[in-house]
Amino acid sequence: MNKSETRDKAILKTVKFEVLRYNPAGNESPHLENYSVPVTKGMTVLDGLNWIKEHLDSTLSWRSSCRMGICGSCGMFINGLPRLACNNQIVHLHSDRVVIKPLPNYDIIRDLVPDLEGLFEKHRSVKPHLIRKDTAEQDSPTGEFFQSEQELLNYIQFAYCIKCGLCMAACPTVATSEEYIGPQPLTAGWRYLSDTRDEGAEQRQDVLYSSHGVYRCHFAGACSQVCPKGVDPALAIQMAKRDAFMKGFGRGKKRSGSSVIPPIQDWTPRGDIPDAPAKTVPQKSE
């Protein structure tokens, strides 16, 4: 049996892909184009698009990279929900019709390619990095900033964000307000605001607790529903609201960044741990 015969046998069904096409250079207005795609076991929506590009229409455009739910490039509006194309198998959609549109609430560059620049701009506005007053220590560290396991658990979930932007496409407040910062940047802001090592609360709060910040969220929950990494932006935003509320009454947690722990000098290795093998590649200093 040759390769194509094996593939023909593996085909489970044929599915109709309806894909939104838009070419800024062309005269055609945005429209849905139909493609018949043979579906095999384990085939994702991204695989389906690749099949179309390979066999039917090489001009179809979208953005993708890792094809394993890590990079967050292939966010699309698939059968009525924002999803990652690589993270959803066609058979799991339980439909013979797959309607794919670019993520809503973003401008369309071409076909299924959204313009995410607005998202990244808002993301940058919340200063998504550790801010320390002692910048010299940050630039040339003498040790680690202390953090307990429980302190880590308070924000680690929000650090799983891959910036795919699905939450912004799902959010009903983003749908009507261009100024609203939105679930992804607010979650990123809260991730650092709740980090015990951080000392940038004042700078970050100006954005997070502004009139277009956390209190524009009304807990529709769509962001958390569509998040492919379980980040739960709705939870982060409610926690930030409570913090803003408590601070408004002068009762919020005021803290300075955690202290620096110098590296442990005096230690003896456990006897049952074998020595590391000798280095096989010469080190730079040697």
């Binding site: 838009y22 800024p24 945005p30 670019p102 993520l103 809503p104 609430n105 973003y106 401008d107 369309i108 560059i109 959204p114 313009d115 009903p172 407040t173 983003v174 749908a175 009507t176 261009e178």
Partner: peptide, 11 residues
């Protein structure tokens, strides 16, 4: 760029 903000229906 083609505007794609859902507006009132998205709300």
């Amino acid at each position: 760029r083609l505007k794609n903000r859902l507006g009132l229906w998205g709300w």
